[in-house]
Each structure stands twice: as C-alpha cells, then as structure tokens.
Design a protein around this nucleic acid. Structure first.
Lengths: 196, 196
DNA sequence: TTTAAATAAGCGAACGCTCACTTATCTTTG
DNA sequence: CAAAGATAAGTGAGCGTTCGCTTATTTAAA
C-alpha cells in the first residue's frame, strides 16, 4: 500500500494552527485549510473523522507538547524557588520558540475543545505540580495555601506578561517586549508573596 | 414615525451574549440569534449594519459597562491597599452579578473584535490606573515597577481565580468555588509582593 | 526477476445544507 | 398619509463532507 506523505500530515496541522491564530476559530474552514496546506479537502478526511476531531486532535497535541516542555529539568522535590524558576523559564522559552502554539491554546481555552485538554492536564500536570506544592509546604519554603490561590499567584502573572508581549502593548505603553530581566523581576515579586 | 421596540433591542444583545458564551463565536449565527431573540433576521439589520458591527458593538458595550463598574468608589489618589482592594472587589462583584459578561469578554479577547476594546481601555482604564500606580509609588506604598510587571502581579491572579471558578474546577480539585475569603487571601499575597 | 493483484493515499468536483444578507410587503406610529 | 419599524420569504455564496476515480507502493505468484 501507498505510504503516507508525512510532510502533508505536518502541513495540515501547522497550517491549521496558523489559520486559527490569524483568523480565529470562526473564519477557519476545511476547504480553506486544504488550499493553504496544498492538499485536497478529501485528504484531510483520511487523517481525521471530521472537522471536530481535526481541531480536537491538534489542540491536545499542542497542549501535550507544551506540558512536556514545561516539565523539562523539573522535579517535584526541587527547592521551591529553583523549581518555580525552572517552570517560568521553560514556559517562557517554549513561548519564544513557538509563539503560535501559545496563541493557539489561548484561543482554544474558551471553547469546548479545551475540555479534553483540561482532562489531560489534570492527570499529568496536576499530579506533578500538586506534589511540588505539597513538598514545598512541608519544607516550609511556601506558605500553606489552597491550590487555586497558589496557582493564581504563582503562574498567572507570567501568562499576563506573555499576553502583553503577544499583544505588543499594554494599557499604558504602546510597545512592550518581554525579556529575561522583566521575567526575573516579576518572579521575584511572586516568590516574595509565596515564601513564609 | 413608529418608535423602536426597546425590548427587542435588549433581547438581541442579551441573546447574542448567551449564544456566544454557550456555543462560541463559531456556531453563532444571525439566523439563530433572530430565532432565539424572537425577531426576524431582517430586524437585526435595522439595528446593525452587519454581523461584524453587531458583535463589535456588543463587545465594546460590555467592556464599557465592566470598566465603569470596576471604577466605582475608586479614585487614583486612594491609599494603595485600599484602592487595589476596591478594584478587586468591584471586579469580583461584577462577575458575580454578570458571569456571562465575563465569559463573553474572555472569548472575545482573542479575536480581532477586541482591538476596539483595547483602544477604549487604553484611553479610559490606562489613564486612571496608570495614575493610581504612580501615586502609590510616590507615597512609597508600592515598589517602583514597569507598568506591565505591576499589572501582571496586581490583577492577573484575580482573573485566574475567576477562571477557575467559571470552569468549576482546577488542575487538582474537581470542584472549585471562589468566595470572599479566598479573594482576600490572594489579595493579601499580592499586596505583600507589591508593598515595599 | 517479472508482473499483476491488492490496497491505502490522494484528488477534483460536486452535493446538500446553512450562512449572512436582501426584497417586497405589511404595520404602527406621529 | 408619510415615515420608519418589522417581517416572511427569499437569494447567492460558502460551508463541511462525500463520491468516483487515479496514483503510488507492497506483496507474492509465476
């Protein structure tokens, strides 16, 4: 039998992400994607059952890649400040390498497609980072907190900075670029908030 | 001449928000909206030039309402901790009263419709909150910081908590409800981070 | 080693349906 | 009755999806 053209498979996924980031989920269509990826619409249906499964699959794929990346060089029993810094650095590095992925996930976050991502993240991400938080508490490097309060203070500021960066500006500055120095400054504040 | 039926005007806007929150921007259609609001599709085109203007107008309207609400009882020369608490309380109260508005804006945030909102927020929101930040710095109630770092640490955690609440769960807990006590706890941490 | 059967990949064209939007007509007001 | 509101009944365009067919590759009998 004829083997799959892996380049086509890749092109479909890549162009789908590009199109959705550029034009949003509305404005995204299978025929448009086919033209953009240089394949026939029918070919897309060899790989995916329907449009729903196409988007869903890409969504989970990207989320898995992001999660794996952000857990690089990380272990739940690391020193609290070190562990949090590794997490921040990984996320920032991933974003610098794959800015489209980040924007793509942000768009998907408020669609029903994200439910599968949440389920996946809960199993993999939640376990590891929940353990990290509990360990840090035991070592008295972190104030005892409900998980959600901890998470909101520990990670949300980073995502907001990335959002400003993606947007290219903020409410008062017409141009904004996130760099290592700014990240460290924000991380310093977060650590100050969370340490006993 | 015949006057407009204001009930219809309101129904169109309200149902549009409900539909977009329920099914996303894709899956939202003018015919569907007309049926849901109990009017003819053509009636919608009396109020709005096209679908684009319809969504755009609702988007800006909701954002303006949110901004006005969140500046209630607030002044840029308030004591820093008091001012930040008022902001957090206002946002949380608005969300409790109009949870759909919040979800609606979050969906719109990653579409081209949000550009107009950003422009509007920059003018109104940015001015007031920029002044608040500068005043707080002068009074030495706030560490000197770039605006974006300040904003990320000061407000992002609240939005993340609201997100968890909307979602109804987080990465480790299968059920989560945001309340006043949790908000105060998170606000306490944020203040600890930002105060000298 | 040749060759043809078998099979999945891949495609262009078109299907049925829904979409955003319009037209022709009627209704309600000053 | 003039003027604007409101609508039922459309319209063509574009959507997701499928059909009928071709192409490339493997397999294995001759």
């Amino acid at each position: 039998m004829r083997p799959r053209d892996e380049h086509k498979e890749y092109q479909i996924r890549q162009k789908a992400i590009e199109l959705i980031v550029a034009e949003g989920l509305d404005g995204f269509g299978v025929n448009k994607l086919a033209r953009s990826a240089g394949v026939s619409p029918a070919t897309i249906y060899i790989y995916y059952k329907d449009k729903e499964e196409l988007i869903s699959s890409i969504c989970v794929g990207v989320a898995e890649k992001m999660m794996t990346f952000s857990l690089q060089n990380f272990s739940p029993d690391m020193d609290f400040a070190d562990g949090l810094r590794v997490q921040w650095r990984n996320r920032l590095e991933y974003f610098m390498q794959c800015p489209l992925d980040m924007e793509f996930i942000e768009i998907m976050r408020y669609t029903h497609f994200y439910e599968k991502v949440t389920a996946m993240l809960t199993v993999n991400f939640g376990q590891v980072l929940g353990a990290f938080m509990r360990n840090a508490e035991e070592k008295q490097q972190l104030i005892p907190l409900p998980f959600e309060v901890y998470w909101a203070v520990a990670y949300a500021p980073l995502y907001q900075l990335i959002k400003f960066h993606n947007q290219g500006n903020s409410y008062v500055n017409s141009s904004f670029k996130l760099d290592d120095k700014l990240m460290e400054q924000a991380l310093g504040l977060v650590l100050k908030a969370l340490k006993p």
